[in-house]
Simulated scan of single mutants.
Amino acid sequence: MLVDEEEYSEAGRGVYPDGLLEVLNAFHKRYRAHHPSLKYIITENGFADSRDLRRRPYLLEHLLAAYTALKQGIPLEGYFHWTLSDNWEWADGYCPKFGLVAVDRIHELKRHPRPSYYLYQQITKTGLVTRKQREREWNILQSEIKRGGSRPFCCAVDDRQRMWADGLDKPTMRAIAEKDWRFGKSPTQDLIVYVLRSFEVIQTLILDVIQVLGGRANLQSQHEPMRDL
């Protein structure tokens, strides 16, 4: 279910850089005893953002999560950003823009490197994510939020705020979330908030059941024979 205060990519994926470190730790803990020589490569980590405002801090924060995993002794050998250029997504079509390089589908598929392309290029050359980079990209995003900036959203959402697998060819616009989702900043999910959201999900499921049962009852009544009064 879509939550207004959380941040999402154009493809409806939630943003939580700490989750990358959590997954790497869980994976390593699960397999290291039986496969002590096993090493890991992150093959897809990226963010659909045609405006390229959130992709840059997203990239920096997830690389910091990967670096932290290395410092903790996790044998992480490689990282591949998803993706180099805008692509066709199986469930979402061309609407979400994942690329470090934009593809102009109107003018002979010309390629235009986005700012995130040059940021990633700089990081791969130096091997560093600097405090200055991190502060600059986050401040740019915050300035856009203060201006009331919005971004495209390519997921179908119903009247109960549920996201479906259906992708949109033409995106809707949503406000950029104000939440501080940077690595190490996201607080542990508060139990009360978790319980309240769980009740919202349960309520939605109950309404679904009522709607389905009501539809069946109406269908049955339509097929009942007419009775003499």
Rank of each mutant, 00 (worst) to 15 (best):
M1I: 02
E5N: 09
E6D: 14
G12I: 02
G12R: 02
G14V: 02
L21V: 03
V23C: 08
N25E: 15
A26V: 01
H28V: 04
K29H: 13
K29S: 14
A33Q: 13
H34Y: 06
S37W: 04
K39H: 14
I42E: 09
T43I: 04
D49T: 03
D49R: 04
S50A: 10
L53F: 11
P57E: 08
E61L: 00
E61G: 02
H62P: 02
H62S: 05
L64P: 02
Y67G: 06
Y67E: 13
T68W: 00
T68C: 06
L70M: 13
K71P: 05
Q72N: 15
Q72E: 15
P75V: 02
G78L: 06
G78W: 04
H81K: 00
S85M: 14
W88D: 13
W88A: 09
A91H: 08
G93F: 10
C95W: 03
P96A: 09
F98K: 04
G99I: 03
D104K: 02
R105W: 07
E108R: 05
L109R: 12
R111P: 05
H112M: 00
P113W: 01
P113A: 03
R114M: 00
R114N: 01
Y117H: 14
Y118G: 05
L119M: 03
L119C: 07
Q121I: 00
I123Y: 04
K125L: 05
L128W: 03
L128G: 00
T130Q: 08
R131T: 15
I140R: 12
Q142M: 12
S143A: 15
I145P: 11
G148K: 00
G149V: 11
S150G: 11
S150L: 00
R151Y: 11
P152E: 09
D158P: 11
D158K: 01
R160L: 01
Q161F: 09
R162P: 04
M163S: 01
W164F: 13
A165H: 07
L168C: 10
K170V: 15
K170S: 14
P171S: 13
R174G: 03
K179F: 03
R182L: 05
R182H: 10
F183K: 01
G184T: 08
T188P: 12
T188I: 09
T188L: 14
T188M: 11
T188N: 08
Q189N: 08
D190Q: 14
D190M: 03
L191N: 11
V195Q: 10
L196S: 10
R197L: 10
R197Y: 12
S198F: 03
F199C: 03
Q203V: 00
L207Q: 15
L207T: 14
V212F: 14
G214P: 11
G214A: 14
G215Y: 09
R216D: 13
A217F: 07
L219D: 15
Q220R: 06
Q222T: 07
H223V: 11
P225M: 06
R227G: 02
L229N: 06
